Amino acid sequence: MTTENPLTHLDSKGQARMVDVSAKEHTVREARAMAVIRMLPETLQLIVEGKHKKGDVMATARIAGIMAAKRTPDIIPMCHPLMLTSVKVELMPNLENSSVDITARCKLVGQTGVEMEALMAASAAALTLYDMCKAVDKGMIIDQVQLLEKKGGKSGYWIRKGDEV
């Protein structure tokens, strides 16, 4: 009885490898991920009112997220370099929870998915907010980094339970 290793980044000897996707079909692929950064209400107010002394914190975080998606294979060792066709990063202040809710969406036509790129975009945007605001609020918390949805490829469509529209 043989069992195939479900961890595709390991060969039969357990050594790390980049998966060969050359035989995979080119399909439209899309992924959506999120992150949340919680902070003091005063910190969020500075951001929302545009009074942070470092400038437009949200615009900088958005750009950082886009750049991170494009550089994912430089950070995550077994990720393929991808020709992304779209990266969108949305940052929504949440006054009720004293947080910024970040959603990243990545898209391409290719042979492998873009889940890691979406996760990197959301994470980098949150980290950038932290970096730019740490002088006024070192207690910020980044959490809920997660894949929300993916489309395309052999495995088709997947959505996190509870996120169905």
Rank of each mutant, 00 (worst) to 15 (best):
V114C: 05
L44M: 08
G14C: 09
D143M: 08
C106N: 01
K154P: 15
A23L: 15
A35C: 06
R38C: 11
M132K: 08
L10V: 11
R62T: 08
E42V: 07
V36M: 10
A23T: 11
L148W: 04
S99E: 02
T27P: 07
I75S: 09
E149W: 01
L147T: 09
E49N: 13
P73F: 08
M78N: 14
Q144L: 09
P81F: 08
T2M: 14
P77I: 09
V100E: 02
E49K: 07
H9E: 06
E149M: 08
M116T: 08
T103Y: 01
Q146K: 13
I102A: 01
D20C: 12
A33E: 03
S155R: 13
R160G: 10
R105P: 00
H9S: 06
T103V: 06
E96N: 13
L127N: 10
K150I: 03
L82P: 00
H26D: 12
K150V: 04
A124T: 00
L108Y: 03
R71V: 09
L46G: 00
N97I: 00
P77M: 10
G156E: 10
R62W: 04
D11S: 07
S86K: 06
Q144K: 13
L108G: 01
S12G: 15
Q45L: 11
V89R: 00
M1D: 14
T72V: 15
